[in-house]
Design a binder for these strands. Sequence first.
DNA 1: AAATTTAGTCTACAGTTGTAAACTACAATA
DNA 2: TATTGTAGTTTACAACTGTAGACTAAATTT
Lengths: 122, 122
Amino acid sequence: MQKTIAITDAELDIMKVLWQQGALSSPEIFSLMENNDKSKSTLKTLLLRLVQKGAVRFEEINSRTYRYIPEITEEEYINHNSKNFINRVFDGSVQKMLLNFVKEEKITKADLERLIVQLEEE
Amino acid sequence: MQKTIAITDAELDIMKVLWQQGALSSPEIFSLMENNDKSKSTLKTLLLRLVQKGAVRFEEINSRTYRYIPEITEEEYINHNSKNFINRVFDGSVQKMLLNFVKEEKITKADLERLIVQLEEE
DNA sequence: AAATTTAGTCTACAGTTGTAAACTACAATA
DNA sequence: TATTGTAGTTTACAACTGTAGACTAAATTT
């Protein structure tokens, strides 16, 4: 069982482009995050931290360019964070969460019905 | 629209007992959190921070004891955090989250059906 | 009244996070 | 080849977090 790697919010923005693209050089990451206001330097720091914590590895492309590759998958991230969230906010109960979302009208009956149909189609 | 008050994990433990009990003195909080290993001093720091950020207020009971009262409700906390979580992890889409939970078998068809029944009963 | 317990306050401190400037070294271009 | 652009590295720094010791002052116990 692999140890848990915590990814912070700022780091997550980088992971998202990496997950989407598979592997990117840092300039590529940077240009894909142009909407993001962070400086290039900030980006590099975040990338370095991701490498240090093992969330990303890199390969040398040529002498001064690297390709960064995600080491943990988006699924792993999602699963880990979902569990965390449900534990923290809903005492670990998915039921409790669902009930709350329905009560708060974040989920409608139509949503639920659609899901059931989807489930049956498989 | 009230400004957002961020509650950290450690602080949340305190909020939880306050939400459950409504209002407590700090020794009461402390004894309700005995399972928790934190020192009394730590608890007081967290309580102070909660007061500073407006998540908790206090009333004097007698000269050297206070009653601490939650200023934000558990619902507010849950709603805010749910939104945060869904934004961060599922790009703001509840549908996406549900789909993922179903796929990961965190939610079963039975869960969904039960929810629909509950909805209809209201 | 003296000793002890205890609620609260002040101060501290290391680790994490978000952010970035300064610096280095190679590569492309003039 | 000298200049300039740029990928990467080092260093920094303040805010936030988790944790807690030291100190103060009031209440309780002896």
